[in-house]
Simulated scan of single mutants.
Amino acid sequence: MVNAQDTYADESANADPWEPVNRVIFRFNDTLDTYTLKPIAKTYDRFMPQPLDDGISNVFGNLGEPRNLVNNTLQGKFRDAGVDMARFLLNTTVGVVGVFDVATRMGLQRNDEDFGQTLGAWGVSSGPYVVLPLLGPSTVRDGGARVPEALANYSYTGQIDHVPTRNTALGTDLVDTRASLLAQEKMIRGDRYNFIRNAFLQNREFKVQDGDVEDTF
């Protein structure tokens, strides 16, 4: 019996014509993760007190609000952009630079937007699936969107001139994000490459369409 998820990439517009090359890069990334980032993330997850872990995640989530604000504005979703602004102001002040997510407790749910989604909202096709060295799953559209995002300089890393501080923030953000994915790895079944590819493509489609997608199962 064939799982619907296993054929998702073949049945959608997000085909994987570069699979042989993608698999090579995937194995490189996976091996690097297995012997470097994953052990660090496991140690971090094991010894980091949950309240402190939540606080760190909240801080980096708050630092991502300007990106949400810019992209919601570009997509014409002005109500969501207003929520992004309100969240940033509330969590930065009342929430002590974002340590406490008071905005969510007040009913202001966090958005998750990027320039790849903005391009998709304006009709730009995702193009073929591609695995980027070190960066992981992407598509031609989303990978290319990283360039204008970097030039826009609206992420927190672009606002920190002190190199050691910027590197420390990046490293902490990376480890915290990787630790948050540890539990999800237990859900992987069958071919690891196929599972991650299809999960990524479905998740991106869901985000671009703001959840308004057809059930393919």
Rank of each mutant, 00 (worst) to 15 (best):
L63A: 05
P137K: 10
L52R: 06
F47R: 07
W18F: 15
T216E: 11
R105C: 04
V99R: 04
G190P: 05
V163L: 14
F217D: 10
I188S: 05
N62I: 01
K42G: 02
A41R: 04
Q209K: 13
T36F: 15
N3L: 14
R27E: 06
P164L: 08
M187V: 03
A81L: 07
I160C: 05
M1H: 07
T93N: 11
V24A: 12
N71T: 07
V102G: 05
K207P: 00
N71Y: 11
I25T: 10
R67D: 02
W18L: 13
G143E: 08
D112F: 03
D212H: 13
V94P: 10
V124A: 14
D176V: 00
V163Y: 11
D176C: 03
F26V: 00
A9Y: 13
P39W: 15
R166Q: 04
K42C: 06
V213T: 13
P133Q: 07
K186L: 02
A169R: 00
D173Y: 01
Y154M: 03
V175W: 00
D215M: 06
F115Q: 00
T165A: 11
T92A: 09
R146C: 04
R23G: 01
N29K: 01
Y156G: 05
T31S: 09
A9D: 14
T7A: 12
V99I: 15
T34P: 02
A199G: 02
V83W: 04
T168M: 06
D80A: 13
R79N: 08
P133W: 14
T43Y: 11
V175K: 01
A179E: 07
I56D: 10
T92Q: 14
K42R: 15
S126F: 04
K38Q: 13
T93E: 11
Y154V: 07
V24G: 05
F217T: 02
M106A: 15
V175N: 03
R189T: 10
L52M: 14
W122P: 00
L170S: 03
D210K: 11
L74C: 08
D80K: 12
A103R: 04
